[in-house]
Simulated assay, not measured.
Amino acid sequence: MKSRRFPLLLGLAAGLFATGASAAPDAAALARGEQVYARCAACHAIEANRTGPQHCGLFGRRAGTAPGYEDYSKAMRASTTVWDEKSLNVFLKDPMKVVPGTAMGYAGVKDDAERADLIAWLKQASRPGVECTVRP
């Protein structure tokens, strides 16, 4: 029976590899990402709207639509971006270039590794659940 499962498992693993699935980020990457997020905390929080919108529920949400946040720029409200790893990577590198007219007056996270760690941490921290409750 085990001999039949092995080829199946190999096939599943190959399929995941071919579709671009990747391993979960390591603890060190998440810790670095949390440190980078400290720069964002002047305006943002995971669970609450502040000067900037909350990040809880960020992944899969259209830009300019955080629950209960009303202070978006016209440019951000008009954006058709849906937040995922790719769109966040582009935006966080140079927010004002990607969304001209955004109220987010931050020059961006220029370092590729820092951005990757930040996005990995955000993906973990912004999932709705026990510690992340979307608040209107």
Score class of each variant (00 low, 15 high):
Lys123Ala: 12
Pro67Tyr: 02
Asp117Thr: 09
Arg4Val: 15
Ser3Lys: 09
Ala45Tyr: 05
Glu34Thr: 11
Asp117Met: 04
Ala78Glu: 14
Arg135Gly: 07
Thr19Arg: 09
Ala125Leu: 04
Met1Trp: 07
Pro53Thr: 08
Gly129Ala: 09
Gln35Phe: 01
Ser79Val: 12
Tyr106Ile: 14
Ala107Phe: 08
Ala24Pro: 01
Leu122Pro: 07
Ala63Arg: 03
Thr80Asp: 15
Gly15Phe: 04
Ala78Asp: 15
Arg4Pro: 00
Pro53Val: 06
Val98Tyr: 00
Tyr72Gln: 08
Ala78Val: 02
His44Gln: 10
Arg127Phe: 00
Pro136Arg: 13
Glu131Arg: 08
Arg135Lys: 15
Pro136Thr: 10
Asn89Tyr: 05
Asp111Leu: 01
Ala31Cys: 01
Ala116Glu: 14
Ala23Asp: 09
Lys93Ile: 01
Lys110Gln: 13
Lys74Arg: 13
Arg4Leu: 15
Ala29Phe: 00
Arg62Pro: 07
Gly57Gln: 06
Trp83Leu: 08
Pro25Trp: 04
Asp71Phe: 12
Trp121Asn: 02
Asp112Gln: 13
Gly68Gln: 08
Thr19Cys: 13
Ala63Gly: 03
Gly57Met: 06
Leu16Gly: 15
Thr19Met: 13
Ala107Trp: 01
Ala125Arg: 08
Met1Cys: 05
Asn89Gln: 08
Val134Glu: 15
Val98Glu: 15
Pro67Arg: 06
Arg5Thr: 14
Leu122Asn: 07
Tyr72Cys: 10
Lys2Asn: 14
Glu131Phe: 10
Ala42Lys: 12
Thr19Lys: 01
Asp94Thr: 11
Ser79Thr: 13
His44Gly: 09
Ile119Trp: 02
Arg62Phe: 04
Gly52Ile: 07
Gly60Met: 06
Thr65Arg: 13
Thr51Arg: 10
Gly60Phe: 05
Thr51Ala: 15
Thr80Ser: 14
Pro136Ile: 01
Met104Thr: 11
Asp26Ser: 05
Gly68Lys: 04
Ala14Gln: 02
Glu47Met: 02
Trp121Ile: 03
